[in-house]
Amino acid sequence: MSEYQYYEFLAVDRPLSKDEQAQVRALSTRATITATRFVNEYHFGDFHGDTTKLVEQLYDAHLYFANWGSRCLLLRLPAGLLAKKTVEPYALEESLTVHTKGGYTLLDFSLDCEDGGEWDFESSFTLSDFVGLRAELAAGDLRPLYLAWLAGLRVWELAEDDEEEYARETEPPVPAGLGELTGPQQALAHFLKVDEDLLTVAADASAPSGDAAPADQAKALATFVSALPTAEKNALLVEAALGKAAHVGSRLMARFRATRTPADATTVGSRRSAAAPQRRSAAALLDAAHLHRTGRAEREQKARRAAEEARRRAAEERRAAHLAKVAAAPGPLWTEIDDLIGQKKPPSRRVSSWRRSVSAP
């Protein structure tokens, strides 16, 4: 059985210097290394560097996956943009851990599948699928954190062990927009194997995102920026002029997002409410997901049976129409049969088809 491992690092906020690239090159002679990217694939052997330290010191994102199922996504953000205390309510050791180092918050989204499960020879990922999560988190969108928490619950459910722990564990704050994930968030849900039924029932308590059309959002953002104190706006412009504005947009968007609430009270006829719902236990969510999964399976089975019945009826109708056509004008077929008997030839496709239709039950 052939092993496969993929390692990728990205430097987003600043490129690596020549000395830093040489430092990384010393860890791998075959990797493709540039000022912003490191990538290597292993079919035997392993990477000898410390991936966590490389992210702490040099890179802003790291991706690892292996065909035996292990997966890891590391993201580094300035602590001023995403505080550790913001992440901690969503952390479960099975899927998300967080720590700080040198003024940065480091998120470790992981699945450890080295437990004898089936090997995965089909899945393939690159950091371009996930790097947009950094900007979303920096702008105050916490949906990626909640997805990681759900992934941890799925690990619990498959383990089928401590049900008392399920009852004690309470969900973290539910971010808006779980029912309308962005592209990077969908990629993360797939990467962490978030159960679709679990995500669906979790989204019941999630308000609509409240994201307006681009033109409306730009107008609202302009109004928000206009209301900022002049001194603060001047300071932001100076940062931009000095080239220190890599995260100015994210900081502004996070503050802007915090001032906006999901659309009004309750959507008529919707399962969602803008009022803060009561926090659900892990046990309640897993039970609800099981019921949803069972109901969905029953609906899908019913739909398959209905489709099969429709195909059967259509076949019967075609057969009945064909027999009626033959019964209305049987002469040509009998003439052809007599000719073939006289020539001692096998029946034509037309006669064979007629025979099958007549003999069919």
Rank of each mutant, 00 (worst) to 15 (best):
A235M: 02
A66D: 10
R255Q: 13
R312V: 00
T36S: 10
E232P: 15
V87D: 02
A202N: 05
G210P: 11
A215F: 11
E317N: 10
P78V: 02
G103C: 01
R355M: 09
S17F: 15
T86Q: 08
A265P: 14
V225C: 07
L237I: 13
A282V: 03
S123F: 11
E180Q: 02
V248A: 14
K18F: 12
A360E: 00
A11D: 03
T223F: 13
V155F: 13
A207L: 02
L137G: 05
I341H: 15
I341C: 15
A307K: 13
D50S: 14
R168P: 07
T51K: 05
G269V: 04
S110E: 11
R293F: 02
V238N: 12
K219D: 00
K344N: 07
R279L: 11
W149K: 05
A297M: 10
D129Y: 07
D115G: 07
P173T: 02
R257W: 03
F44T: 12
T32F: 14
L291D: 01
D211K: 00
V201T: 02
A159V: 08
G210C: 00
S348T: 09
A320R: 07
R134Y: 00
A265D: 04
S250I: 10
G249D: 06
R260T: 06
Y7W: 01
R260P: 14
A303T: 10
V98E: 06
E336N: 06
Q185C: 00
W354Q: 03
L54T: 03
P277W: 06
A31I: 07
T266M: 09
R257V: 05
R318Q: 03
L82F: 06
R304T: 02
F130H: 09
S17C: 02
G243R: 13
Q23G: 15
A288T: 01
S17E: 06
L73N: 11
E114Q: 13
N234G: 09
V131D: 08
G116V: 04
P332F: 00
L133C: 09
P347M: 13
Q278Y: 06
A61F: 01
H48C: 12
W156S: 09
H190K: 09
K85A: 14
A213V: 07
T182P: 03
R251P: 06
V155R: 15
S273L: 11
T170V: 07
V98K: 15
T100D: 03
T34V: 04
R355Q: 11
R76A: 04
G243A: 01
V194H: 09
H48P: 14
A26G: 15
T266S: 10
E157N: 12
